[in-house]
Amino acid sequence: MIESILLWTLAIVSAPFFAAVILRVKAFFGGRKGSPLLIHYYTLAKLFKKGSVYSTSTTLIFKLGPLVSLGTAITALLFFPMAGRPPVVSFSGDAIFVFYLLGLGRFFTIAAAMDTASPFEGMGAAREAYFPIICEASMFMVSILFYRLTGELSLSAFFSGNQPAQFWSTAGSPMIFVIIALFIILLTENARVPVDDPATHLELTMIHEVMVLDHSGPDFGLIELGAFSKLFLYSAFIARLICPFDFVHPALDVALFAAAVLLVYIAVGLVESVMARYRMDRVPKFVLTSFALVFFAAVITLEFAK
């Protein structure tokens, strides 16, 4: 239990560090030196020191938005078995709870954006409401596949111990498709490049960044921390699948897990460096591809795993 809580805290604390890796990779490809790896900690510290300015159009919901988006993200992390060690809490069906909890976070992010009466934020909100619908379907498809393979429905049953390694041995190569699909979901849910460009300069073309335009100071810090935690959660899914080893020794497990997570972040950075953002009407097709991949993996696995 103590170990699980420690790992959970470590995950939240290290999430900003990993996010900085993406910036570093992008800088490397751009031929720049890049920002320090601790940049996000400096930013958070700066934001937490400031006061806030609120739009006169906003209400209580606007202030609740950052809290709920951070709260849901870190609560979701509680259910994830970090490095394959047991999670803090776990029960049968917690996967459903986690997906819906992230939905709650999304509800409040959108509501907070609509609170400002800004047309740009409304635009971002509409996109934020649209794309994750398909992501959710893909996530449930992944759960169905994993449920069929494990007979359990909780993140700890899916990702802890040597279960990921067993996925590979029973399902084999279709797991590659599952990983690609999860990567697409990661990019979509966390507003990364082919879906959304966090570094663009035009509000019209943003999704997540435009929704938090009016947040400032500590509120914005909470949102950033929530976004880092959410990105970490999705990366951790993939990290456990690409590196399914279980050494039983905690320190070794954690080190390997951290390396795998790092690899996922580097991959995100790579994608951001070599790809351009899709036109908005192309995004649904991109996300649908993830659903198609998982569905496809499920069909061929379930048909031939018998």
Partner: peptide, 22 residues
């Protein structure tokens, strides 16, 4: 589902999906 044959064939199936999407 671990043979090279199955992997190759699943790539062929995958190409169908991509061809429909292009």
């Amino acid at each position: 589902m671990n043979g090279p044959m199955d992997t190759i064939l699943s790539l062929a199936l995958l190409s169908i999906l991509f061809s429909f999407a292009s």
